[in-house]
Write a protein that binds this DNA or RNA. Structure first.
Length: 144
DNA sequence: CTTCTGACA
DNA sequence: TGTCAGAA
């Protein structure tokens, strides 16, 4: 694995994350207790967020701002995580397969953390939300 | 001064 | 969710 594989390397304090996401510390910590994210910790028990955690929180906030309920956001994240898990599992499986076929070098897969699957998924969701927001202006709910 | 946990309006 | 307390 290379050093700068993708977007993860826990190093941001909750203060930085607060500024970057526009969320309050209260909410950031609350979502964590709900199992929506799991930042690292320093030896002093201080939370350490990765860029991935920040993106995740921004995504959560975006959905919430568009009227999606917390319960729905949680379900969505669960599905994304499951998709990522499967993607990574397949990735490892292919690597193993390639290895046993004697052509290991074929893969330079350092894409285990944040696969593109959830990212593409999020893009679709964001587009859909933007469209719905454009059409149904006077909507408080009813579009799910 | 910043962050943490628990608790209460 | 906001906010306060008391400790680290």
């Amino acid at each position: 694995m290379k050093s700068g594989s993708h977007s993860d390397q826990p190093s941001f304090s909750i203060g930085v994350v607060k500024e970057a996401t526009g969320l309050t510390e209260r909410r950031i910590r609350y979502y964590e207790t709900l199992g929506m994210l799991a930042p690292g910790r320093t030896q002093g028990n201080q939370r350490l967020y990765s860029q991935g955690d920040i993106d995740r929180l921004k995504y959560i906030k975006a959905l919430l701002d568009h009227g999606v309920t917390l319960k729905e956001v949680r379900a969505q994240l669960q599905q994304e995580d499951t998709a990522t898990y499967r993607h990574d599992f397949d990735e490892v499986e292919r690597d193993a397969e390639s290895y046993f076929q004697g052509k290991l070098i074929a893969r330079r897969a350092d894409v285990h953390r944040d696969s593109l699957y959830p990212l593409i998924n999020r893009q679709d969701i964001m587009r859909r939300l933007a469209r719905e927001h454009k059409d149904g202006q006077g909507d408080t709910k009813g579009d799910h």
